[in-house]
Structures are given as C-alpha cells and as structure tokens.
C-alpha cells in the first residue's frame, strides 16, 4: 500500500524545490509561483495525514491554506503592479533601500549577453510610379 511516508517525501521535495526557486529567482512573479508551490507541498502533507488518521481535519486545513493562498495572490499581485509602476521592472533586487546606513548597494557586475540582432526586414525593390487615380475611382469613393 502507498504509505504516508511516500507522500511526505514528495511533499518535502516539492517544498524544497519551491524554496530553491524562491531563494534564487529574481522575477517577483516567479518567486510568487514558487511560494505557491511550497504551499502545495504543505497541502499534500495535510491531505496525507488526513488519510492516515482517517478524519477530515487535515483536508479542512488544506481548504484554509487555499483560502489564505488566494488572499496572498490578491495582495501580492496588487503589490507587484504598484512596484512595477514605480520601478518599471519586476526585479526584486531593485528594492534594497532598507539596508543599513553606509552599506553600498548591491549591483550586478556581470553584463547580460548581447541581444541577438533582429533579422533585417527584406528590402523590397523600388516599385514603379504610383498611378494617378482615374475620375471613375474618385467618384466611387
């Protein structure tokens, strides 16, 4: 039979992957999704224990987690919108004003790879002279 342990392992791994993503990725939306993934890991834990204990309290807990996650999503996305309006970027590292006085800001030293040049539009050969509209066409317009 599938024991509770298997689910716990899956939940822990899911949580860990989410944690790694939250710690390393700098796009605020990706960070948010990683946090949601951590919540999913916890939800699996609760559901597994509900099954194990043979009652529904764990599932009720998952419902509350979903509710809280919904709140979080609402607030977080609103915050992203505002932050984006002010900084014109989703990079979380652009917000580091709350550092200790006198500590220099952290800046990225490595330069990004160059943007590959857009393929040039094909040049059309010059066409002939534009014919003057005829009287008929003028009337039709």
């Amino acid at each position: 039979m599938i024991t509770v342990w298997h689910y716990l392992v899956v939940a822990a791994v899911l949580f860990g992957i989410g944690l790694v993503g939250f710690l390393t990725r700098r796009n605020m939306i990706t960070m948010f999704l990683c946090a949601e993934m951590m919540l999913q890991g916890v939800a699996i834990n609760f559901a597994a224990f509900a099954r194990y204990h043979g009652n529904l309290h764990g599932q009720v807990f998952v419902l509350f987690i979903v509710a809280v996650a919904a709140c979080e999503a609402g607030i977080a996305l609103a915050l992203f919108l505002m932050l984006y309006r002010r900084a014109k970027t989703l990079d979380v590292s652009s917000w580091q004003e709350l550092r200790e006085v006198g500590v220099p800001p952290t800046v990225d030293t490595e330069s990004l790879p160059p943007v590959p040049a857009e393929p040039a539009d094909p040049q059309l050969s010059p066409a002939g002279r534009k014919p003057a509209p005829t009287a008929e066409e003028t009337v039709r317009v």
């Binding site: 979380v92 917000w95 580091q96 004003e97």
Partner: peptide
C-alpha cells in the same frame, strides 16, 4: 556584521533557510 543588512529580501530569506 553591519554589511549583512544589505536590504536584499532574498539574501535575508537565504540566511533564514
């Protein structure tokens, strides 16, 4: 230890983890 307080949220989270 003051430079540890560098204002980067992710650095704080990393320290926590």
């Amino acid at each position: 230890v003051r430079p540890i307080q560098n204002g980067l949220v992710q650095f704080y989270a990393l320290s926590m983890a």
